[in-house]
Structures are given as C-alpha cells and as structure tokens.
Write a protein that binds this DNA or RNA. Structure first.
Lengths: 209, 209
DNA sequence: CCTTGTGAATCGTTTCACAGCC
DNA sequence: GGCTGTGAAACGATTCACAAGG
C-alpha cells in the first residue's frame, strides 16, 4: 500500500468531525461536495482522500454517513481506545489531564508525571501525579502507547528520549522546543511559539503588500 | 514578491530557535548544513528558504548567527511586540494567560474574556478576566491584533466571527472544532483531537505493516 | 441526471548540482 | 577548499475531467 500523506490523514480527521455533526443532525447520506464545503476543500479532494483506502460511496447517491463514519474511524485506528501518559503536571499538563474531551474520543489518560515533589500525589480525574523517576517502569506496566509532553522546553528532549526508550511510538509535544525522535517514533508538535510566529509573519506580510 | 509557503515560514521559526541556542552557546557563524541538522532538514532547504528573502550568508564562510537571527526576526515580524487577547478563561485559557514564555517572545496578553460570571474579575498576570460582552469594544480599544480562542467547540465559530468583525486578522484556535474565517483573516489551529488522531493512524498503520 | 472513483494534467515544493564568491 | 545562492530536475500533492454506475 502506498504511503499516505499527512495532509490526507489530517483531512480525514476533519471529515470525521463534520460527519458526526451531520449524523447528530439526522442526515443519512452526504455527497463529497457537501463534506468538502464544511472542510474548506474540494469534492475531488474528498474523493481522492477516501480512494486511498477503498470505495465507500454509491455513484449518484453519495456516502452513507453511518458507514463512512465507521470507515474513517477504522482507518484512523479509533475503533479501540489508546492509553496516554502526560509528562509535566504544570498549568498545561494539568489542564490536559482534566480535559474531558479526551476519553470521549478514545484517549484515556492512564498516568501523569512530574519532577516537582509538590505536584506529585495531586489527583486529576482519578489519576495521581507520579514522580517522573518511575516514568519508564510505569509506561511499561500500564502499557501506555502515546505520550504527551508538557514540560519546560529545556526538559522536552530528555523526556522524549525516555518515553521512546520505554517503548512509546507516538508523542504529542506541547513544549516550545523543537525535539527530534528516532524514525520508529511518530512526533506531532503543538508548538505555540511557531504558530504565533506564523501569524506574526502573516500580519507583517499583509501590511507589507 | 512570490507567495511564501507555510512550510517555509514554519522552518524559519524553527531556525530562529536553533540560532538563539547557538548564539547563547557563543557560536558566531553557522553553515546551512549545521542549521539543517538541528532542524531535521537539508542544507539546500535552508538555503532555499532564506533565498526567498535575500542573501544573508557569505560564500565559503556561512552565516553570521547574529545577523541571520536579526534577519529572520525581521522576516517573521518579531521586531516589535503584538497584542494578544485570549477568549475563554477555562483550564486551557487560564494556563495560556499565565504562560510566561509569551511576553518573552513579543506576544503580550492585553485581555482575557469569558462568559461565566464566576470567572469574570479573576486576575491572571496583571490582566483581569472581562465579560465576553465587551469583546468587540475591548479589542478595538486595546488595539489587539491576535486572538487566541480557548472555548468549548460549540462556541468557537461564534467567537471567531466576533473577533474577525472587531478587526482581528490573526487567530490561534485551541478548540477541537474546525472553524472557518474570511480570507482576510489568518487562522492557525492547534487542534489536539486532530493531532491525536494522526498519531492513532500512525500507530495503527505501523501495526498493519 | 447525479455523484463516485480515478488516470492524466497541473501546480507547488523539495532536491540536485554547479557556477560564483570568499 | 568550502559554502552560498539558484536555475533545473525530480518528486509529491491537488485539481481536472470523464467513464462508469446508481
């Protein structure tokens, strides 16, 4: 099977969001054009994205919302839930730990870690903050599959190395550092500094023209 | 001037981070290859990215770190500071409001808004939470240029419409909704749901192969 | 007649490779 | 000799356009 572009996967995730809304609204079928309009793309793009994985529609009719939702959830690996650990129980880490949208979508926080003794032992939504010393052991014991890094930038690379060594293959990095991981690990960065600077560039460019 | 790709701007922002580290370490010059290695790209990519904006290096020598840092800060519009409002003073909004890395990099939080009377009046780092009723008026009065949206997904689109109407041209959306904005507004989404689903896909794909 | 699925064409980005300069 | 700056080539993603099927 051909390698799938990240942009395709990102759009599938968005389609899923819109499909769930349409489903809630009681709609039964949808055409690629309508899905495209919700997501700011084109009908050809929607069809091409789906075509990498099979054919899910009926010519002349469109897609069954129920079926397409199921298909995309299967493609994205959302038919079962994932175990997530959060490293860093500061403001952002704590906010994420309490975020209720998580479990709803199949991502269960099974561990939270910090190196500050004042934070260790605090409870967030049924999970106690553990000392980061036990990170590797706990990741293995709990069978965690995804790590969220929410530590200061200087500590981010070290944490990434440690969770990778403990067998984690997927990392979501909230720090403003730019970290690197071995090829066997998938890394997504939610780097607020970078996003703000992209906005700054756009504002500046707009003013230049 | 040709349109600049978003990927180029994102890399410039990363280069800036590495350059600042090298500068702190006392290095004076750097070659494209070394910058590339820090950022997981290639020397040709670094040179091409910079070439869109001018020529900043010396053949045979590389780039003066001091000069290149200044040039990139100029390109990204970071030579002056930006006024930011945060809409939503829940867990994420409050965490962002207190985030000290913000002002360091020229992004000053000048306003925080919420619709919950229990949150209105709370102080975060010298700024009081205001009622979201006064959003448009305050945005104009304060001269805010960037809005950060940290509200529940159902409310995100409405907030985006309101800040856009109030004259804001740059939005950073932390909600898990997929919102749309007029072409005059630049939108960046830090959509945790999408990023987690991309990780889920990668883990599933890895297992499939 | 409407809408999908898809090869072919187009467009944009990255990589190559080398002339030009320090 | 070493490294930049940049056209040209290669690659990858998006858009087009149409045959096929309900």
């Amino acid at each position: 099977m051909k390698r799938i572009a990240e942009s395709t996967v990102r759009r599938l995730s968005l389609y899923l969001r819109f499909l769930e809304e349409f489903e809630k609204a009681g709609k039964l079928t949808i055409a690629s054009g309508e899905l495209a309009r919700s997501g700011g793309t084109t009908s050809a793009q929607v069809r091409k994205d789906l075509s990498f994985f099979g054919s899910f529609g009926k010519r002349g009719l469109g897609y069954s919302i129920r079926e397409l939702t199921g298909a995309i959830r299967g493609i994205l690996g959302l038919k079962h839930s994932w175990k997530v650990v959060i490293v860093g129980a500061g403001k952002i880490g704590a906010a994420l730990a309490q975020y209720s949208g998580f479990p709803d979508r199949g991502f269960n926080v099974v561990g939270i870690f910090d190196n500050d003794p004042r934070r260790v032992g605090q409870w967030y939504d049924g999970v106690a903050v553990a000392d980061v010393c036990s990170l590797e052991a706990d990741v293995r014991r709990l069978g965690a599959e995804i790590a969220i890094i929410a530590v200061p930038p200087q500590a981010a690379q070290g944490v990434a190395d440690r969770v990778a060594a403990a067998g984690i293959h997927a990392i979501l990095d909230f720090s403003t550092a730019a970290i690197t991981v071995p090829p066997s690990v998938t890394l997504r960065s939610m780097n607020m500094a970078v996003e703000l600077e992209i906005l700054s560039f756009a504002l500046t460019e707009g003013a230049r023209q």
